Amino acid sequence: MTAQQHPAAHTPLRAQLRRACGRDGSPLCRPVDRARSRLALALPLVLVALLAVSAAVSALVYRAETHDEREIARHRHAVVATTVGAAVADDLRTGGSWAHAPARWAYPVGPGGGVVRVTVGAPVGTAVPIQVDDRGVPAVAARDGAVVLSDAGFLGVGTAVALSSLAVVGFTLRRHALDRRAERSWEPDWERVEPLWTQRS
């Protein structure tokens, strides 16, 4: 009889709990069987704990990123730039729909100028809304709350998947090791227990 054929190899939850706690009075219950029951009971608890950790990481990242984006937003200002030159396609080989053009804009700290993104074929004098920093230099706008929440959520999901995958791999390796150990020891253990089990001396 192999470990796979052992009647205790697949047991309901209640029996797993009794075995894991050492309260299974069966003479066929060996230390390796109790170890397998503890392992089977531990996996769901570990996965729940890892999900909680991932959710906490996501919440902390969202809180930190929200604070950072609010700070960035305090130093971003919407202005309207006006192109003063012809638009040049960003990539003539691919025939893309975007181009860049020289432009000017006004800001309380003084007039500014530079290159802005426009659609291909935009005429001179096209108005383009842009974001500038406190010095009047073009800058990336702060992300809105939905984007921050989405990024934090993806990070949380990725963390949960990575940690859970590691836990399942570890569980599988440990389970296989216990199964091999149980299979190797089953014959000698059965020879020892069989007389008691069959009430033979």
Score class of each variant (00 low, 15 high):
L149Q: 13
R104V: 10
P108M: 07
V147W: 06
L166A: 15
R117A: 12
V118S: 04
L163A: 15
A139L: 09
A142G: 05
V124E: 15
V115G: 04
V116H: 01
A146E: 11
V128R: 11
V140P: 07
S150Q: 09
A152Q: 02
A162C: 13
R104G: 00
A152P: 09
L166H: 04
R143V: 06
I130D: 04
D134S: 11
G158Y: 01
Q131V: 13
R135C: 04
L155Q: 04
R104Q: 05
P138H: 13
D134V: 10
P108C: 10
L166F: 13
T159N: 02
A167Q: 02
V132I: 15
V132G: 11
T126H: 07
A103C: 09
A122C: 07
D133K: 06
D151C: 03
P123C: 13
V148Y: 00
V118W: 00
S150K: 10
T159M: 11
F154E: 00
L166D: 01
L155G: 07
V147R: 14
I130V: 10
P111R: 12
F154V: 08
L163P: 01
P129W: 09
P123N: 13
V124D: 14
V157A: 14
V161R: 06
R143L: 12
A139R: 11
S150V: 07
P138M: 08
G110L: 05
R117Y: 05
V161H: 02
G158I: 08
G156D: 04
L149S: 15
W105T: 03
A152H: 01
V148T: 13
P138F: 08
V115H: 03
A152L: 05
A122N: 09
Y107N: 00
G145I: 09
A142T: 05
S164G: 15
L163Y: 02
D134I: 07
V118N: 03
A160L: 09
A127R: 15
G125Y: 12
V140C: 03
D151S: 10
A103F: 05
V120S: 08
A142Y: 03
D144Y: 08
P129I: 11
V148Q: 00
V109W: 00
A139Q: 11
P108K: 12
D134F: 09
P129R: 12
G136C: 09
G113N: 13
P138I: 09
A122K: 03
V116S: 06
V147H: 10
V147P: 00
V124I: 15
G110V: 12
D144C: 06
D151G: 13
A141N: 11
G156Q: 01
T159E: 00
R104W: 00
A162N: 03
G114D: 01
G114F: 07
Y107A: 12
V120P: 02
D144L: 07
A142I: 06
S165H: 04
V115E: 01
T126D: 06
D134C: 08
V161E: 02
V147A: 15
D133G: 10
P129H: 13
G112P: 03
Y107V: 09
V148H: 01
A122G: 10
I130M: 12
